[in-house]
Simulated scan of single mutants.
Amino acid sequence: MIENYFAFATTVFMGLLAIVNPISAIPVFLELTDYMGDKQKRNVAAKSVLVAFCIILVFSIAGKLIFHVFGITLAALRVTGGILVFVIGYEMVRGKPESIGKSVKLGDEPVKADAGISMAITPLAMPLLAGPGAITTSMSYSAAKDVTHLLIVIAIYAIICFITYLLFLAGPRIVKVIGTNVMLVITKMMGLILAVIGVQMFALGIRELFEF
């Protein structure tokens, strides 16, 4: 029995890790929080993984019920997520103007105490860390099993969220090691990949919506 649980946990971990791919979210996080101080970056990182975990938790437990009550289809979720991911990737490739993302400050302190919560929710938590793929996978692993398997899925995603949080905080150190120019290239490459993923998600959602 324990071996079966361990095998299931390993499968869930590898599957969710591949879909979430926290390493690919590092350039996005660094790009969005470039103007922030260390404290704000930690705040955004913590909120993004917490929101992502709550999303997966809710959908793992009551995903099918939520979709049924609100008349939401997974195809519609894929279309919306695809559009959001494409826009994010496009902005990363194009490069943002200096004025974008600047917070209004009073002296050395931001006027808005909770600056960054919006980007922590979208795009970091949703759809990057808890997108349609992660939601679908977690629902699939949870639905056909008992409560123990459900708890394993939730625990595994919590571990992935913690790993993502550590990677976000280590982002600036990674930049120092590989250099700003290399990170700029990686950021633009990841932007292109995100844009392509967004188009693929959108196309798959459209295909599922109209069944062709």
Rank of each mutant, 00 (worst) to 15 (best):
V12N: 08
A113N: 13
I152Y: 03
N43I: 00
A130H: 07
G179L: 04
Y5A: 12
I56K: 03
D108A: 11
K176Y: 07
A143P: 00
A52R: 02
G37Y: 03
P127Q: 06
V199K: 07
P97E: 12
H149G: 11
F6K: 13
S60H: 00
F210K: 12
I100C: 13
I206M: 14
P22L: 00
K112Y: 12
I156E: 04
A9V: 06
K112C: 11
I56F: 03
L209G: 05
V177M: 11
K96I: 12
T148N: 15
V182E: 03
R42E: 12
V28D: 04
V44H: 03
L50I: 12
L150V: 10
T11E: 15
L30C: 06
E109W: 00
I23Y: 06
S118G: 11
G15M: 01
L167E: 04
F210C: 04
V20R: 07
A18M: 07
L194P: 04
P172W: 02
G171H: 01
E31S: 15
Y90G: 10
G71Y: 03
G191V: 00
M92H: 10
S99H: 15
C54Y: 09
E109K: 15
I23Q: 06
A75H: 06
T73S: 15
V147A: 12
T10W: 10
I100Q: 15
C54F: 15
G171V: 01
S48F: 00
I186C: 06
F29P: 08
A9Y: 08
L204R: 13
I26K: 05
R94W: 10
A113V: 13
T122F: 04
Y141N: 07
L192C: 07
R173H: 10
M139T: 02
I117Q: 08
I154G: 02
V104R: 10
L128R: 02
I135W: 02
A62L: 01
P97Q: 08
P132Q: 04
N43E: 11
F53K: 06
G89L: 06
I178S: 07
L194I: 05
N181Q: 09
L128K: 07
Y90Q: 15
G171F: 02
K145H: 13
P27M: 01
I193N: 05
S60T: 13
L106R: 14
M1D: 13
L209C: 11
V175Y: 05
S140T: 14
L77A: 06
I56W: 02
V20F: 00
A170I: 00
T33G: 06
H68P: 00
H68S: 14
V182H: 02
C161A: 10
G71K: 02
P97T: 05
L150D: 02
S103T: 15
V147P: 01
A143S: 12
L128C: 01
L65A: 12
K96V: 14
S60W: 00
V20M: 11
V147D: 11
A115Q: 14
K96L: 14
K112N: 15
A45F: 02
I135V: 10
L16M: 09
N181Y: 03
E211T: 05
